[in-house]
Design a binder for these strands. Structure first.
Lengths: 105, 105
DNA sequence: GAATTACTGAACCATCTGGTTTACTTTATA
DNA sequence: TATAAAGTAAACCAGATGGTTCAGTAATTC
């Protein structure tokens, strides 16, 4: 799966976003990724699987450890989708500004 | 709720993204929003509620109809979060380019 | 070769999700 | 005033999600 559904769903969990944030500092073993969280390593392993299925990270087996690294390319599709709405949220700020000006009169 | 969890979760459904896309053409009644979909109006109503709870649209009661309009401002937070990774997906393309160049030699 | 480490798989559980149908409220129209 | 239209609420269902524990596998170290 590599569609927007799975990308956004994968990003909708704070633990998973924290994992991705951690990976911006470089690749990490699964046990390293699990350390900061107050949950079992199995749970983190499942989160990593969700991220991997979404294509957001890549897992490489190396000896008995699994090394994860970020694959941010998939995020671009999500970002591109959101970009279509950029004019709308900036326009909304414009409207807000007009409302605020109107209140001053 | 107005956090990234709920924003991304709301965006992780194709029906809901289609509803938001429809609203870029202007406000719409709930029955108009429901028309294109092969599901009950109740189901669409629930989707609209999810989007409203996420702050992605605003519902205004007007007579016996509900008029929905886009509130794209919430998307900006999601977009900002993704922007933090922009360097990583562009860098990844750079790496890919290097790999491709390497293969040519 | 035995013990330890790093992880996965399987079973289980509670809760959430996305859909349904039926019943209801509210507003507009004939 | 009766009827139709627009929408929500409630109950229900199947399947997904996010967590657990326990057992197993594979690689490393003692």
């Amino acid at each position: 799966m590599h569609n927007l559904d799975t990308t956004f769903a994968a990003l909708s969990d704070g633990t998973r976003r924290a994992i991705l944030a951690q990976l911006t500092h470089g690749e990490a073993r699964l046990s390293d990724l699990a350390a900061p969280f107050d949950m079992s390593q199995t749970a983190v392993s499942k989160h990593v699987r969700v991220l991997r299925d979404a294509g957001l990270l890549v897992v490489e087996k190396r000896g008995r450890t699994r090394h994860c690294r970020l694959n941010a390319a998939v995020m671009k599709e999500a970002s591109d989708w959101l970009d279509n709405y950029q004019t709308f949220w900036t326009r909304q700020f414009d409207n807000l500004a007009q409302v605020l000006v109107g209140q001053e009169e």
